[in-house]
Design a protein around this nucleic acid. Structure first.
Length: 788
DNA sequence: GCGGGATAGTTTTTT
DNA sequence: ACTATCCCGC
C-alpha cells in the first residue's frame, strides 16, 4: 500500500515484553512513534493521534485504513495508555484479524502476542461467553453449531410443533430467526407484528422452542455468540462493568458491515469510556442483505456526541482514470456521507469496455487478454476476475482450463463446512461427549450401518420420553428387544466403539485418536471405496484435518478452532489468476481486474432491485465501486449481449452502471474476436472450416450492421481492436434519444438468436422487439438486421 | 434401507 | 441447464 510500509521503528519495538513495560522503553518507543507518524498523511495522522473519545474514520477504498488501525494500536500501547490486553479490536473475518495481528506485530514486536482481544466479533463473543456460560444457561464447553446442525435442529422443532415442513421449510425459519438475531432480538423481543410471519403466527414460538433446544443441547449458533453476550450484559450489569473497565480502547474494522446486534454489543462496551474508534466506508457497504446497517455509520455522531470524524480521501492504490471512473460512478448514490477520492498517481490506462456477443465470447476475450498479460510477464497473482454471481464462474473456468492458465477460485464452501470435515468432526464430538445428539445423529448411519430413519425415530422417542441424550437412549435400548436384531447389533457395535475411543482419548494425542476413529468407524474406507475424482480430494481433506489437529494442545481447543476459524488455503502463494465474486474481493487489490457481466438484470442484479428498490440499486452500485477500486493499474469491464440464465438464453442490455462512468476515463474497445473471424476470411482453409458456424454468421451480421449503421456502439475505424479510439460523448447504450433512431415501431427485423420479429419500441439504441418465436425482448440495435 | 427418477430452486456470504 | 433434494418403488 503505502511506500513506507516497513516500519522505521520496528527495531525499537522488537523488545521482549517485560523490558517493554519499563518506563524508559515506553519513552523511547513513543519517540519512535513520533517518527513513524510523520510518514502518515495529515488525516491518517489525525485518525491515529486522536486517542481519547469517539472517533469515526471514513476511509475510502485504498486510503490506508488497515494502516491507520494498526498504527493506532501501536500508538495506544507506545503511549502507555493501555496494555495490549486492554485493547479490544474487532474485525469481521479471521483473515482480517490475522492480518491485523501480523501488522501490529510488525510495528511493536512480540508484545502483540498479548493482544488477546483482537479477533472477529464471533471469536471474542465466544471467549466472553465461555467465561460466563452458566449465566446464560450454557456450560463453558458448549458446542458451536454449523449451518447443517442448525437446520437439522430447526426441522425437529418444526416437527415437534406439528407443522408441515413442506409448507414451512426449515430453511426459511432459519433465515427469519437469523435476521432476528442479527437485529439483536431475543424471542421475547420479537415485535408482535413479525412474530407471526412464519407458519400462521408460530414464528416467535418456534424461535423460543429452538433456543430452548439449543440450551438443552448445550449449544449455540453463530447468532447466539453475539446475542447471548447482549443478554449476559443486560442481565448482569456487574459483568458488563468488568468488560467496560477492561477495554480501555476499542477499535472496529469495516464498521459499515456491522449489524444491529454488533452495534449494540459495541455500544454497551463503549458506553463508559467512549474510547471507540470505528473505521469504515459507507461506499463499500455491500452486506445490507445479511443485516448490515449502513445507518450504524450514519448515526455514529448521534450516539457519540462530540465524536471526531476523519475522512481519508487520498488513495494510494489506483491510477487516476480508475479512480475517477469509480468516484464518478459512486457519486450517483444518494445516501452516502460523501467522500472524494484523490490520487497523486499518474492517470494510467483508461478503464476499458468491451462488448461481446455472448458470455462464451466474453470468457474467450478475457482468456485471450490474460494470455497477453501472461506473455508480457505480468504476474498471474496480480490478475483477478470479479463476477457478480458465482454462476458466471463456470464459463470463465472452462476457458482458463482450455487455455491452461492456472487459476484459483476464492470463496466457495469453507473447509469446515465440507461434508467430510463435518462428519469427521461429528465423530470426534461424539467421542468427546456422549451428550452431543446432533453429532450422533449426523454420523449414526455414515457409513451405512443399517440404522435408518425407523431406528433413529425409535431412539428419538425413547430419548424424549426418558429425557436422556440419544447415545444414552441407544445404550438402554440395545438391552431391550424393541429393536430388530440387525440394527440392534449395529448400534451395539457403534456404542462399544465410542466407549473404546473415549477411553483412548484419555491417554493418546488427539490426532492419533482421530486417525483411529476415522479408520475403525469405516469412514475413511467409505470414501476409498468411492472411486470418484472428488472422493480423492475428500480423503486429502481428511488427512489435512488430522494433521492440523497436532497443533492444538487438546481436543477442546481444536474443536473451537474448527468451528470458528478453520479454512482451506489451497494454492496460496502460487502464481495464479484469482476468480471470485465481487463480494469476496472486498479488501483485496490486483494490478489488473476483469469485470465481466455488466448487464442489466445481472449487474445490477434484478433480484436486488425487486427486493430492495433504490436501496438495492445503490448497494449494487457500491458493489461496482468496490470492483473498480480493486484495480491498481487496469480495470477491464465486459458485457455480453446474450447470456444464459437458468438455462434459457436471454438477450441483455448493458448495465446502467456503464452509462454512469465518465466518458473521459473509459476506452471502448472492439471485441478482437470479430477480427479474428475476419482474418480467417483471408486464408481459405480456416475460413471454410468456420463458415456457417454461429460465430461466423455473427461476425457477418455484425459487419453488415456496422457498415450501414453509424450509431453502432462499436468504434468505426479501428482495425486491430486494440488501441481503439475513445468515442467521446457516445457512451454505449444511451437511454436518451439523441441518436438517430434507425428502427421504427412496427418495422420488421431479424435477430441472429431470436429470429424474425416486429419492433415494438425504441429507446436510444435499445430496441424492444416482439419476436415471432421468442416473445418480447429488449436488444441492442446493433444486433438487429433490417428486413427487406 | 437404498438407488434412481421427479421436482423445485436457483445473488451476494461470514462466523 | 444444472443441481440438490425428495419420494417412491424395490
Amino acid at each position: 500500500m503505502n511506500k513506507n510500509d516497513s516500519s522505521p521503528f520496528s527495531d525499537d519495538f522488537g523488545l521482549p515484553a517485560a523490558k517493554h513495560n519499563s518506563l524508559s522503553a515506553r519513552a523511547r518507543a513513543s519517540v519512535s512513534v513520533q517518527g513513524y507518524l510523520t510518514d502518515l498523511n495529515e488525516e491518517q495522522r489525525r485518525a491515529v493521534e486522536t486517542l481519547d473519545g469517539p472517533v469515526l474514520v471514513l476511509a475510502g477504498a485504498g486510503t490506508g485504513k488497515t494502516r491507520v488501525l494498526t498504527t493506532r494500536i501501536a500508538h495506544v500501547i507506545a503511549s502507555g495508555k493501555a496494555r495490549p490486553f486492554e485493547i479490544l479490536s474487532v474485525t469481521f473475518t479471521n483473515k482480517a484479524a490475522r492480518e491485523m495481528k501480523e501488522r501490529v506485530a510488525g510495528l511493536i514486536g512480540p508484545v502483540a502476542e498479548g493482544m488477546q482481544w483482537l479477533g472477529t466479533f464471533h471469536a471474542i463473543g465466544t471467549k466472553i461467553l465461555r467465561r460466563h456460560a452458566e449465566l446464560v444457561g450454557l456450560r463453558s464447553d458448549f458446542t458451536i453449531l454449523g449451518v447443517d446442525d442448525q437446520l437439522r435442529l430447526m426441522k425437529q422443532v418444526i416437527e415437534a410443533e406439528r407443522i408441515d415442513e413442506k409448507r414451512w421449510p426449515a430453511r426459511q425459519l432459519a433465515s427469519i430467526i437469523d435476521s432476528w438475531k442479527n437485529r439483536g432480538l431475543t424471542p421475547a423481543q420479537v415485535p408482535p407484528g413479525e412474530a407471526g410471519i412464519f407458519a400462521q403466527g408460530k414464528g416467535a414460538k418456534l424461535y423460543e422452542a429452538y433456543q430452548e433446544r439449543l440450551k438443552t443441547l448445550n449449544a449455540a449458533d453463530f447468532g447466539d455468540l453475539l446475542l447471548e453476550c447482549l443478554r449476559l450484559w443486560r442481565e448482569n450489569p456487574d459483568v458488563l462493568a468488568q468488560y467496560q473497565e477492561r477495554f480501555r480502547y476499542i477499535l472496529v474494522d469495516e464498521y459499515q458491515d456491522t449489524n444491529v446486534a454488533q452495534y449494540l454489543w459495541l455500544r454497551l462496551l463503549a458506553q463508559t469510556r467512549k474510547n471507540i474508534c470505528c473505521v469504515g466506508d459507507d461506499d463499500q457497504s455491500i452486506y445490507g442483505w445479511r443485516g448490515a446497517e449502513v445507518d450504524n455509520i450514519l448515526r455514529f455522531e448521534h450516539d457519540f456526541p462530540g465524536a471526531t470524524v476523519v475522512r481519508l480521501e487520498r488513495n494510494y492504490r489506483s491510477t487516476g482514470y480508475i479512480l475517477s471512473a469509480a468516484s464518478h460512478l459512486i457519486a450517483q448514490n444518494q445516501s452516502r456521507l460523501g467522500k472524494t477520492l484523490r490520487t497523486e498517481e499518474e492517470d494510467g490506462e483508461k478503464v476499458t469496455l468491451t462488448g461481446a456477443w455472448d458470455s462464451e465470447e466474453e470468457a474467450r476475450l478475457i482468456g485471450e487478454e490474460i494470455e497477453v498479460l501472461q506473455n508480457r510477464k505480468h504476474a498471474l497473482s496480480e490478475i483477478a476476475v470479479l463476477v457478480r454471481v458465482s454462476a458466471q464462474m463456470r464459463e470463465i473456468e472452462d476457458r482458463l482450463v482450455t487455455l491452461g492458465v492456472p487459476y484459483r477460485v476464492i470463496g466457495g464452501p469453507r473447509f469446515y463446512e465440507r461434508a467430510e470435515i463435518r462428519d469427521a468432526l461429528a465423530y470426534l464430538r461424539c467421542t468427546n461427549s456422549f451428550y452431543d445428539d446432533l453429532a450422533f445423529e449426523r454420523i449414526v448411519n455414515v457409513p451405512k450401518r443399517g440404522l435408518g430413519d425407523a431406528t433413529i425415530q425409535m431412539l428419538h422417542n425413547y430419548a424424549r420420553s426418558t429425557g436422556v441424550p440419544l447415545m444414552e437412549a441407544a445404550r438402554q435400548m440395545i438391552e431391550t428387544d424393541e429393536l430388530r436384531p440387525k440394527p440392534r447389533q449395529s448400534l451395539r457395535d457403534l456404542l462399544t466403539s465410542f466407549s473404546r475411543w473415549a477411553k483412548m482419548a484419555e491417554t493418546m494425542p488427539q490426532s492419533e485418536v482421530a486417525q483411529t476413529v476415522l479408520e475403525e468407524s469405516g469412514y475413511t474406507e467409505m470414501w476409498q471405496k468411492e472411486r470418484t475424482a472428488d472422493a480423492a480430494g475428500r480423503l486429502e481433506n481428511l488427512k489435512e484435518f488430522v494433521r492440523s489437529m497436532e497443533e492444538f494442545p487438546d481436543m477442546q481447543s481444536f474443536l473451537e478452532h474448527v468451528s470458528l476459524v478453520m479454512e482451506a488455503n489451497e494454492g496460496e502463494g502460487e502464481d495464479r489468476v484469482s476468480l471470485m465474486t465481487l463480494h469476496a474481493a472486498k479488501g483485496l487489490e490486483f494490478d489488473t481486474v476483469f469485470l465481466p457481466g455488466w448487464e442489466e438484470g445481472l449487474f445490477p442484479n434484478q433480484r436486488a432491485l425487486d427486493e430492495s428498490g433504490r436501496a438495492g440499486l445503490e448497494e449494487e452500485r457500491r458493489l461496482a465501486h468496490v470492483g473498480l477500486t480493486r484495480a491498481k493499474r487496469r480495470a477491464k469491464i465486459y458485457f455480453a449481449s446474450n447470456r444464459r440464465i437458468h438455462g434459457l438464453w436471454n438477450s441483455t442490455v448493458p448495465s446502467r452502471f456503464i452509462d454512469e462512468l465518465p466518458e473521459g476515463s473509459v476506452e471502448v474497445l472492439d471485441a478482437p474476436a470479430h477480427y479474428s473471424h475476419q482474418s480467417r476470411f483471408d486464408n481459405a482453409p480456416a475460413f471454410s472450416s468456420s463458415y456457417g458456424t454461429p460465430g461466423w454468421q455473427r461476425a457477418q451480421a455484425y459487419n453488415n450492421k456496422k457498415s450501414d449503421n453509424h450509431q453502432s456502439y462499436r468504434s468505426q475505424n479501428s482495425s486491430t481492436g486494440r488501441g481503439a479510439p475513445i468515442i467521446e460523448g457516445k457512451v454505449i447504450a444511451r437511454s436518451d434519444n439523441s441518436g438517430d433512431a434507425s428502427f421504427a415501431i412496427g418495422e420488421r427485423t431479424f435477430h441472429m438468436k431470436f429470429g424474425p420479429g416486429t419492433v415494438a419500441g425504441v429507446d436510444g439504441n435499445k430496441i424492444t422487439v416482439d419476436f415471432d418465436k421468442a416473445g418480447r425482448k429488449m436488444v441492442l440495435e446493433s444486433f438487429l438486421q433490417k428486413n427487406a
